[in-house]
Simulated scan of single mutants.
Amino acid sequence: MTVKPDWLRVKAPQWERVGNVKEILRDLALNTVCEEASCPNIGECFNVGTATFLIMGPACTRACPYCDIDFEKKPKPLDPTEPARLAQAVRRMRLNHVVITSVNRDDLSDGGASQFVQCITAVRAVSPQTTIEVLIPDLCGNWQALEIILQAAPEVLNHNTETVPRLYRRVRPQGNYERTIELLKITRALSPSTYTKSGIMVGLGETDEEVRQVMQDLRSVDCDILTIGQYLQPSQKHLQVAEFISPDQFAAWQAYGEELGFLQVVSSPLTRSSYHAEQVRELMTRYPRSH
């Protein structure tokens, strides 16, 4: 693998705190994207007692060459106890904000929308003060399934764009750029009170102009929140890093995003789609939407 620059070095976590979070996750038999996708911020997030829960997994029905989540295992039937176990983790971890994401479940008629709803409902029952963010797949363009999720009223709906259109066939071969933009557009139309969010990876060979065009496309459908982070190669079998982007370039994209009118732009080499996600609670205070 390419040698990482100094700005991508991560501080060693306080393993006592990390161990406490891991103990809860193991006790309740839950998956996190922090672990399954080899997130570089796992130490920082576990240290402050947060995690992004990965439901309906860990096996994925798609084989995106950038992602470290397993696609070789056969997906299992949905576990009806998973929502209650997730809710108990939220309670035990005393989370103010929780992110719930999933693998792609193209084998399910609703893409797993019903399981998202069950998880949202379970969390609200045991921790009503916790704000909920769902990071969803594209549901194969099933907008009825999207509406089912939105009817459960998560505060934030996140769907990642991941890369620029030119690179979709190589980076996200089973995805569709126009479908991703359409999902965010329909979310705004169906649920004006929901904050919409998306994220992109850079360092895969895209140009500055292409990144800025994606940002414009997201604002054209009134996307509220944007995350931009450096792609890191999980293993030799994954896509190689084309370029390590400088912190100055990330700062320039953040400034441009703010000019475009995003309510929040989180842009740095180590940013991931759920990085500092709890900051949305402050955003909700500054830019309230009626629920």
Score class of each variant (00 low, 15 high):
86 L>E: 09
146 L>K: 10
93 M>L: 15
12 A>T: 11
61 T>E: 03
162 E>M: 12
137 P>E: 02
264 Q>S: 13
66 Y>G: 03
188 R>H: 14
60 C>A: 02
230 Q>K: 05
136 I>D: 06
40 P>F: 08
146 L>I: 08
139 L>Q: 07
107 D>Q: 10
263 L>S: 04
228 I>E: 11
23 E>Y: 12
83 P>L: 03
38 S>A: 14
166 R>M: 00
180 T>A: 15
91 R>Q: 11
109 S>M: 10
266 V>F: 09
100 I>E: 00
205 G>H: 03
160 N>Y: 13
229 G>R: 07
153 A>N: 15
248 D>V: 11
112 G>S: 06
193 S>Y: 13
40 P>H: 02
206 E>D: 03
183 L>Y: 01
11 K>W: 08
224 D>F: 11
127 S>A: 14
184 L>M: 11
96 N>S: 13
88 Q>P: 01
253 W>S: 10
212 R>K: 15
153 A>L: 09
143 W>T: 14
217 D>C: 05
169 R>I: 05
203 G>L: 06
99 V>T: 12
125 A>R: 12
26 R>T: 09
63 A>F: 07
37 A>T: 12
71 F>P: 00
83 P>N: 06
72 E>C: 02
137 P>M: 01
233 Q>N: 08
132 I>M: 00
19 G>F: 09
46 F>H: 14
261 G>F: 03
110 D>Y: 15
174 Q>V: 00
205 G>W: 07
134 V>C: 13
105 R>M: 04
218 L>R: 11
175 G>W: 08
216 Q>H: 10
120 I>C: 02
19 G>W: 12
37 A>F: 12
171 V>E: 00
10 V>Y: 05
163 T>W: 11
178 E>Y: 15
103 V>C: 04
136 I>K: 10
33 V>L: 01
281 R>D: 09
247 P>T: 07
29 A>V: 09
160 N>G: 12
39 C>L: 10
261 G>M: 01
64 C>H: 06
138 D>M: 14
168 Y>F: 13
126 V>P: 07
106 D>I: 05
71 F>W: 14
134 V>M: 06
240 Q>F: 00
112 G>V: 04
229 G>I: 04
